[in-house]
Amino acid sequence: MRKLFFYAPLALFLLLALFLLSGLFSDPRERASATLNKSLPAFALADLMQPQHIWTAEQLKGETFLLNVWGTWCPTCNAELGYLTELRQQGVKIVGLYYELPRDPAFDAPFNLQTLQQDVSQKLAQHGDPYQFNILDLQRSLSLDLGVSGAPETFIIDAQGIIRLHHIGDINSQVWRSKLAPSYQQWSQP
């Protein structure tokens, strides 16, 4: 028994090495999404361009679509607008979730919807407009519920309103082909 005791450090080390080996082949930045395969959280948020219209989770059901979290302040989001517009032309339904940055009352100018609308229109005219419509997440409540860690992020939501995929980072032709398109096609089958 005493003899075996001296082999304990070796055994523990080998166990550690096993974990390190498997860790070597997985991406440390990958995060499991907590919202996957769950319904879109309930919300009631205004449309960015027609603020009198209020969108709810219920209204988005019926068709598989991409929910793209973005903002004009985010250069990567602007960069992917062009490719997303191509996708829209191919018939992919994309809804924008506009992520407004938090404002510090001591430092920043107060929020102005008109300025934002102008800003957004200008950006979309410049890079292409992939969106059916944009939902304004002014308090970032829906983004928080969705587990958004930054922009751009994209969710695939099926006709029943269930989140099927959570993609962190930009979408380009390669990412679309290898990751998003298979899932989109799978869930848009009737």
């Binding site: 005493r2 003899k3 005791f5 001296f6 082999y7 450090p9 070796l10 080390f13 080998l14 090495a17 390190l20 080996l21 070597l24």
Partner: peptide, 21 residues
Amino acid sequence: LLVFLLLVVGGSLLLYGIRMN
């Protein structure tokens, strides 16, 4: 580095197990 780690640390701990008792 992992293979090196296995050789150096694994080897030394094995030696430890064999000789220390």
